[in-house]
Design a protein around this nucleic acid. Structure first.
Lengths: 197, 197
DNA sequence: TAAATTTTCCGTAGATCAACCGTATTTTAA
DNA sequence: TTAAAATACGGTTGATCTACGGAAAATTTA
């Protein structure tokens, strides 16, 4: 189940080769890359890697090696705390993390916040949901942002007007927060949502 | 089952090593890192950490240590298609998968469906969301289920009455589906939700 | 405080495995 | 039909892991 150092080197070589050429190396190419004097050595590595599930070997076919797509499909991002809980994000040193599907994550760095309150309920964002946030300092009109106003962290839809910034909740019982530019600090953009029942 | 200071140091060393190299250190490497004069010392730490559940040891294999913290915390489940799209689940042979945080997944097998339509909008389930479903054949009252009625797959809240089954949407503009027991087949329970913006 | 227990360490002997080599045989593909 | 490529052995060596027994130091318990 576990790789040794040399086994990982061999696997990495094969993986790289496939990435660059679109087909796997022959056993002889592997042999000469590592300077083995016998093909048996290559065979042994193929056997180990195959048994461990790191490699597929289309038996008896030439260049039939295929690294198992053990590609990272998810990533750990820090769960920094609650949004709309009145606590600035930086204050939290908790090192909790949460696993997130990579397709949610584009470029840039990300973090997660637990949603508290009903202010975005009409957008389908419920109290208790985990919001996946991309670090950002400004936003486009209409985007859902994490913003800090008067030392409170909130999740709202963002609109920049001529002389003010409006943060719209998605809840008919609540009113937009309207502040001057400098009183509102954007901390990130909502890129995903995870809910557990 | 608490760790002593030294035990934590050893565990941290192993964890860091695995994170950086992709394989675990040998016992000898651990020995020399901490300056032990005997491998037996390392053995004792491995034993203690293993018994406490902080470490897995793939016995008799070289570099076979795996800290629990590095273990997989997400899993691939099949994305079978759309719910509320009029297509029975089994018909779909698509092999798409999606990566899901394990904390959503309890016992049993799971699959994912893409939500179509607005029927659960008041529960915060929007069209386009990915619903994480646990395979099941029956449900408790009030649970959100995947059910097949008249060859249509739908996501609704489930209520079993004396002589009928009611499938409640969460949308004021829609009415409950009311059918006899045998006309409604339950295919799974909603356990999680994933949304990308 | 004294006794019991646990943790931490040492050393050695023996078992197992990884990492090689070499040769012979089978299969694939041009 | 052949050369290239892939399998199938068997065997060697050193690295690595396991199993013990013992003993000092630190902690816990009585």
């Amino acid at each position: 189940m576990a790789l040794t150092k040399k086994q990982k080197e061999v696997l990495d070589f094969i993986t790289e080769y496939v990435r660059e050429n679109g087909f796997s190396p022959t056993q002889k190419e592997i042999q000469s890359n590592f300077g083995f004097k016998s093909l048996g050595s290559v065979q042994d590595y193929i056997k180990y890697l195959t048994n461990g599930g790191f490699l597929m070997n289309d038996s008896h076919s030439v260049r039939g090696l295929l690294p198992s797509a053990v590609q990272q499909n998810s990533e750990e991002i820090p769960l920094l705390g609650n949004v709309a809980a009145g606590v600035p994000i930086e204050a939290i040193e908790n090192t909790d993390t949460i696993s997130v599907p990579v397709h949610m994550l584009g470029r840039g760095s990300h973090y997660a916040l637990k949603v508290k309150g009903e202010s975005m309920i009409e957008e389908g964002i419920l109290s208790g949901d985990i919001a996946i946030i991309k670090h950002a300092n400004d936003a486009q009109n209409g985007q859902i942002v994490v913003a800090v106003v008067e030392n409170e962290t909130t999740l709202k839809r963002y609109f920049k007007r001529a002389k003010q910034i409006e943060l719209h909740p998605a809840n008919k019982t609540m009113k937009p927060i309207i502040v001057k530019d400098k009183e509102c600090e954007i901390r990130g953009l909502l890129v995903g949502l995870i809910r557990s029942y």
